[in-house]
């Protein structure tokens, strides 16, 4: 049995500790996402005003759909922009 030689890596393997993602709505018990509350919805859109994907925010499918619907309604009422260049920085 080949003697197990310790494998030397050129670069140290960076195993980033995978932060366990959790759905913040389930955790904090929020049941309804209000489309009128633009400040709260701003947490779920990026600089360009686009909706953040689930893999970044870690929300569950059920609440991601509610967030998406609320953001789209807020956009319809001009509370959120459809496309923005520096949404969060100019406040």
């Amino acid at each position: 049995m080949a003697q197990q030689t310790d494998i030397k890596y050129l670069t140290p393997i960076s195993v980033d500790i995978r932060k366990k993602k959790y759905c913040r709505f389930k955790k904090s018990g929020i049941k309804y996402i209000d489309y009128k509350d633009a400040e709260f919805l701003k947490k779920f859109i990026n600089e360009q005003g686009r909706i953040l994907p689930r893999r970044l925010t870690g929300t569950s499918l059920k609440f991601q759909k509610k967030v998406a619907q609320a953001v789209k309604r807020a956009r319809h009422l001009a509370l959120l922009p459809f496309v923005a260049d520096n949404l969060k920085t100019n406040q």
Binding site: K31, Y32, D34, Y35, R73, H76, L77, A78
Partner: peptide, 19 residues
Amino acid sequence: MRYLTVSLDKHAFAYSEKR
């Protein structure tokens, strides 16, 4: 100029009461 009519389910209604 623009309007939006939305039906509220029980969670939404409870939320609006609190608000």
